[in-house]
């Protein structure tokens, strides 16, 4: 019964793996590469996510909702925007690491537009990436991209905030609040 539940929960993943196995059967070389990359992805995820989720658990328990609302919630104004950019830019790791962080931020009362700003900053303003980009593509390239991104992110967040609709927004917050 428990195994059946597990299979049901992971059905899409298992389907993909089945697909991979079929490929491996007909093209062993390609199949090997797929499994190598998939294993590599899991290794990367498992190295990055544990400290993120650990920090999120601690944040959830120790940081009061009032504090987050004060710094990032409705009425946090420019301070909230700047803080959201800094939080995203200070991040490390792929964008998927930002999703659970944003979820806890929402649960604690962060304003919707600030969550989007944080998400976009994480995707493209990451300082570690910036340093790497600078050394590979030059300071002019990296710095221009970084600076143009800031007004761009603000514009994107503003547009999403206006277009998403009150119902979608409420549903998003409701879902995060429902998490234990």
């Amino acid at each position: 019964m428990k195994l059946l539940n597990l299979i049901k929960t992971y059905r899409y993943f298992l389907l993909i793996i089945l697909f991979d196995v079929v490929i491996a059967f007909f093209h062993p070389g390609t199949g090997y590469t797929i499994f190598k990359y998939t294993a590599g992805n899991f290794a990367e995820m498992l190295s990055i996510l544990p400290p993120i989720f650990l920090l999120l658990g601690l944040l959830d328990v120790w940081v009061p909702r009032e504090t987050i609302i004060r710094y990032l919630g409705e009425g946090s104004g420019l301070k909230g925007i700047v803080l959201s950019i800094i939080l995203g830019a200070a991040a490390a790791g792929p964008l998927y690491g930002a999703f659970p962080v944003a979820a806890v931020m929402a649960k604690k009362g962060t304003k919707y537009s600030n969550i989007i700003i944080f998400l976009c900053s994480w995707s493209t303003l990451k300082i570690p990436m910036f340093l790497f980009e600078m050394s590979a593509l030059g300071i002019k390239f990296a710095l221009t991209r970084w600076l143009v991104n800031i007004p761009g992110i603000l514009a994107i967040a503003y547009i999403i905030d206006r277009l998403i609709g009150a119902e979608n927004k409420a549903e998003f917050y409701r879902r995060q609040m429902a998490n234990p």
Binding site: D20, I34, Y37, T38, N41, F53, G57
Partner: peptide, 24 residues
């Protein structure tokens, strides 16, 4: 805190697994 972190992780793991396999 540990329980919350673990729960948040296992809740999303099925979707994560799909995405990581697709990326592979």
């Amino acid at each position: 805190a540990l329980m919350k972190g673990w729960k948040a992780f296992t809740n999303i793991l099925p979707d994560f697994a799909v995405v990581l396999a697709l990326i592979g």
